[in-house]
Simulated assay, not measured.
Amino acid sequence: MEAQIKKFVYFTIALDESTDLSDTSQLAIIIRGVGYEFNVTADFLTMSSLHGTTTGKDVYESLLKELAEFSLPLEKMSGICTDGAPAMRQQNGHCVELNSEQYANIVSDLSAEFARRFFQFAETEKKIKIFFDPFSVNPSSLAAELQMELNDLQANKRLKQRHLNHELIEFYHHFFPAGTYQALHKHALRMVSLFSSTYLCEQFFSRMKQTKSTYRTGLTDEHLAQQLRISFSDIKPDLDRIVQEKQCQVAH
Rank of each mutant, 00 (worst) to 15 (best):
R229H: 15
S48C: 11
S213D: 13
Q227T: 14
S231N: 07
E245T: 05
R241H: 07
L224G: 07
P86K: 15
S111A: 09
C201V: 14
G93L: 15
N151Y: 13
F175S: 02
H185E: 03
Q161A: 14
S197R: 10
F44K: 04
G52D: 10
N99K: 07
F70N: 02
G218K: 11
G35S: 15
I5F: 14
I5E: 01
M148D: 09
S62Q: 03
V250W: 13
F114K: 05
D221H: 12
T41R: 03
S25G: 02
H223Q: 12
F135I: 06
M1Q: 07
N156A: 07
H163V: 01
E125S: 13
M148Y: 11
S100T: 09
K6F: 05
F195Q: 05
Y199T: 13
E61C: 04
H166G: 00
V243S: 01
T55D: 06
I31Q: 03
Q90R: 15
K209P: 00
R158A: 13
S233M: 12
F232N: 05
D83P: 02
K127D: 08
K186H: 06
L164K: 15
C95P: 00
F119L: 13
K160N: 08
A143Y: 06
V34A: 12
F132N: 10
A3D: 12
K236E: 13
D109M: 14
F118S: 10
I30Y: 08
L50Q: 08
L150D: 04
S141G: 02
E75D: 14
S25C: 11
L224D: 07
Q90G: 11
K160A: 09
C81L: 10
L142R: 05
P134R: 10
V34G: 08
P237M: 05
C248Y: 07
D58K: 03
I130Q: 05
N99S: 03
D16A: 06
K160Q: 12
V9F: 08
M77H: 07
L21T: 03
N165L: 09
S18N: 09
I130T: 05
Q182V: 08
N92C: 12
L184Y: 05
V9H: 11
D238H: 15
P139T: 06
A85T: 07
M47V: 15
D240T: 13
H173N: 02
F118L: 01
S48P: 00
E37L: 07
F114L: 02
